[in-house]
Write a protein that binds this DNA or RNA. Structure first.
Length: 516
RNA sequence: GCGGGAGUAGCUCAGCUGAUAGAGCAUUAGCCUUCCAAGCUAAGGGUCGCGGGUUUGAAUCCCGUCUCCCGCUCCA
């Protein structure tokens, strides 16, 4: 049932130019998607709603746009390099997963065991006069094993050094390593499980450095903390907001645009005095939920999910979850990140990252409260919340399904469609005149093809909140009809009033008024 | 990653056990003019995901591969 709606939503997103699979004509690229002509408008509007609510509405929050490429040491400091960087291999029979390097180390240990056994035996035989070093260097069986060990060890070290995964697998095959559970040698390829994408910077092979595509935008804010604080003369508490792309090489990326390998984040890091972070955490929690609720998708569809297990950097964490067709899922996270990140960067960079508190007369590393929302998840949430299939009955008693995207007007990709009732008698020209007057302020669309009812439905499908129709009366008194997407009702209004009507209707101000 | 299902026109799908690729909607052009889809006429659009194999002949059978969906697993 719910699944059905989700499928329809995916199909609708494609059919009406919201979301396309990346590289579709080449069979697609896993978990990467493109935004189409309507999708990009909706996405931009979502970003604007967030950006303005953060940066414009808060005197002490400023923006930033940091680069995707960053110094590789940043990811050591943040913990991303060590956190998840192992060569893994699966046994196809037991379906158990092992670290390939550990399996090889065990093979090495086995050889060591063999040699030790020989040594022990000899020790017993010769007693006190036994010279272990000499024995090891002369006994043919020990020497053979030592040679094997040396060769294997070198091969292993080289493979690790070059991150040569094929070689690691070959070692496991050559050493006839078996799975302790299934006892089989039926292995998958060795895969490097690193959530970060890497690339080379520098055009010559010798001079090239491995750098990573950022797996989160937050670090770009932390490393610019001093720049912004000093040049902006910012006083604690203050925040830095950023919207940008991040990349994660997910093992399992699923559910349409919910979990993608390339995605966009809207993050705000709020720097506070140590000891006050939990109060601010609470405050931002309320602010953020009110931002979601202001869109009018129903308060009951949102809930908080408090984290019990906390990440290494956090002392409090909560998710804002929305009731998707496939269940309650996270759209935003609010985390109290303590002073972990700034302290780490202070250590790794050797630069002091502190704030001089004029009240206390002393310096400290600020604590951080983060709000982090996925643009793409938010996009999916808005689509899911707006998609309706309405059953209508026309005056002949015929049943009919109307697909309508009840997008908040401020977010709608197209704000206004202007169309001539029929495409002659000067009506098209008049319609274009109206568009020319409005197109700089509102995203408008012209349509003259097919019956007026059909054109209204097309606009419903992409969530256009208003349709203006030019008819024969327009030439007489300069009025048009304006038809509302949600009620399907219409009013007759003067052309000269359209700008004002539209301005009020598509403004984000009413949304902002509801924010805490 | 494992298991299951799927991939045929822009969308939704039909095409049974091998023999010249279909429908509805959508699109384009023309006619008609009518404020809530489905009026008339015509047209365009698919080497049936891709590669290989079996066969006189493959959308259909076999193998591989890619992508999507569901479940499990993994992870923040």
């Amino acid at each position: 049932m719910a699944d059905d709606i989700f499928k329809k939503l995916v199909a609708h997103s494609k059919e009406y130019g919201f979301v396309f699979q990346s590289s579709e004509i080449y069979d697609g690229l896993g978990a990467v998607y493109d935004y189409g002509q309507n999708g990009v408008e909706l996405k931009n509007n979502i970003k604007k709603y967030w950006w303005d609510s953060m940066v414009k509405l808060h005197e002490n929050v400023v923006g930033l746009d940091s680069a995707i490429f960053m110094h590789p040491t940043i990811w050591k400091a943040s913990g991303h390099v060590d956190a998840f960087n192992d060569p893994l291999i699966d046994n196809k029979d037991s379906k158990k997963r092992y670290r390939a390097d550990v399996l090889i180390e065990e093979a090495l240990a086995k050889l060591e065991g063999k040699m030790d056994k020989e040594v022990d035996k000899a020790k017993k035989r010769f007693g006190d006069s036994f010279d272990e070093k000499q024995f090891r260097e002369t006994n043919p069986r020990v020497m053979a094993n030592q040679e094997k060990w040396n060769a294997l060890h070198k091969r292993f070290a080289d493979a690790l050094n070059d991150s040569n995964l094929e070689e690691l697998k070959q070692i496991i095959i050559d050493e006839e390593v078996v799975c302790p559970i299934s006892g089989s040698k039926n292995w998958t390829d060795v895969r490097q499980f690193n959530l970060m994408f890497s690339t080379e910077m520098g055009s010559t092979a010798e001079g090239a450095n491995t750098i990573y595509l950022r797996p989160e935008t937050a670090q770009g804010i932390f490393v610019n903390y001093l720049n912004v604080q000093k040049t902006g003369r910012m006083k604690l508490p203050f925040g830095i907001a950023q919207i940008g792309k991040a990349f994660r090489n997910e093992i399992v990326a699923r559910q349409f645009i919910f979990r993608m390998r390339e995605f966009e984040q809207m993050e705000m890091q709020f720097f506070v005095k140590p000891g006050t972070e939990l109060d601010w955490f609470k405050k931002w929690k309320e602010t953020r939920i009110s931002w979601h609720r202001a869109l009018g998708f129903g308060d009951e569809n949102y809930r908080f999910h408090e984290h019990e297990k906390l990440a290494h950097y956090a002392n409090a964490a909560v998710d804002v979850e929305y009731k998707f067709p496939f269940g309650f899922k996270e759209v935003e996270g609010i985390h109290s990140r303590t002073n972990f990140d700034l302290t780490q960067h202070q250590e790794f960079s050797g630069k002091k990252i502190q704030y001089f508190d004029p009240e206390l007369g002393e310096s400290y590393v600020p604590y951080v409260v983060e709000t982090s929302i996925g643009v793409d998840r938010m996009f999916l949430q808005v689509m899911a919340a707006s998609y309706f299939e309405e059953e209508l009955t026309d005056n002949k008693g015929q049943k009919d399904i109307r697909v309508v995207l009840r997008l908040p007007a401020a977010l709608a990709p197209v704000k206004l469609a202007v169309m001539p009732l029929i495409k002659k008698d000067g009506l098209p020209e008049k319609a274009r005149e109206i568009i020319d007057a409005l197109k700089f302020d509102f995203n408008c669309m012209y349509d003259e093809k097919d019956s007026i009812g059909k054109r209204y439905r097309r606009m419903d499908a992409i969530g256009t909140p208003f349709c203006v129709t030019v008819d024969h009366q327009t030439a007489e008194d300069n009025t048009v009809t304006i038809r509302y997407r949600d009620t399907m009702e219409q009013d007759r209004v003067e052309i000269s009033k359209l700008t004002e009507i539209m301005e009020n209707a598509v403004s984000m101000k009413p949304l902002f008024a509801k924010l805490k």
